[in-house]
Amino acid sequence: MADLLSWFSDPVRRRPLLRLLVGAQVLYVLGVAGAGYATTALGKQVVLATTPIDPKELLSGDFVRLHYAIGAMPLSQWHGPQAPRRRQAVFVLLAAGPDSLSTAVGLYPQAPAAGVGQAVLRGWVTDVYRNSLNLRFNLERYYVPEGSDLRLEKAGRLHPLRVRVSIAPWGQARITRVAVQK
């Protein structure tokens, strides 16, 4: 009786199977890289403002810590049947203002339909307080490229930053640019 494991571990099949597996893994990693380019090319662009934070924390190692202005929201913007919980995945509806900065207009447990000039960014609830809640977007670290003017910005300045984020329709996002707000 041929069981699945004997079929897989048959020495005759071992080399072709390994080649197949390694090939698939290489293609997959290349696919991840491709998704990066595709997110920039096809994604919706939003610009988010950060709030100044402890200067010692700003540039640590190779990355900048970003605290987004939309990371703290009043509970009145929550549109869900039940109160939000810690760790819950949520959707922030963003609308671009006159200065092209996007601000939050609502917080939803399910993805809302985005109108013209609006975009939806996913986040997670980190803390719930009496009147407000804090969010995390997994976009809090920006790995600073070599030669960027952020490197010249020595720790100790308290400038808010403008972060350009691309949100792909299939549910990935990436930071494409971080600049000092003048």
Binding site: L4, L17, Q172, R174
Partner: peptide, 29 residues
């Protein structure tokens, strides 16, 4: 690579491939 492109995913699919590869390699060897 995700970090290289500052890419965030919102589901497990990115790392799921790792588990699949682990099971497959265990079966082969």
């Amino acid at each position: 690579t995700s970090q290289l492109y500052q890419l965030v995913g919102y589901d497990a699919s990115g790392l799921l491939a790792w588990v699949v590869a682990g099971v497959a390699v265990s079966y082969v060897y």
